[in-house]
Amino acid sequence: MISSYLTLAAVLFVIGLYGALSKKNAVIVLLCIELMLNAVNLNLIAFAKYGINPSLKGQIFSLFNITIAAAEAAVGIAILIALYRNKATANVTEMNSLKK
């Protein structure tokens, strides 16, 4: 049963990865990153029930994880809005200031 959850998490993670690297809209990129985080959470919870050393620790860890993800989403959206204000675009491909 555990491998089914893990495989599902892998599918979710890869879809999130693909979206994060292919989408042009910065908001969607953030959403895809959330997707990847959720895949990780699913893994942690699955291990909490079916792992080698099952305990509640996995659930608590994923709780922290969700908190971090919330913080990340908030900061991400804030940065996005600030960027949009300065550059008038939410397009990831135009955010190439690193090159300059």
Partner: peptide, 15 residues
């Protein structure tokens, strides 16, 4: 919360 946050983000930028 997060979905609402994202919708706000979408609304505040033009798409």
């Amino acid at each position: 919360a997060m979905t609402i946050l994202m919708i706000f983000g979408i609304m505040m930028t033009k798409h």
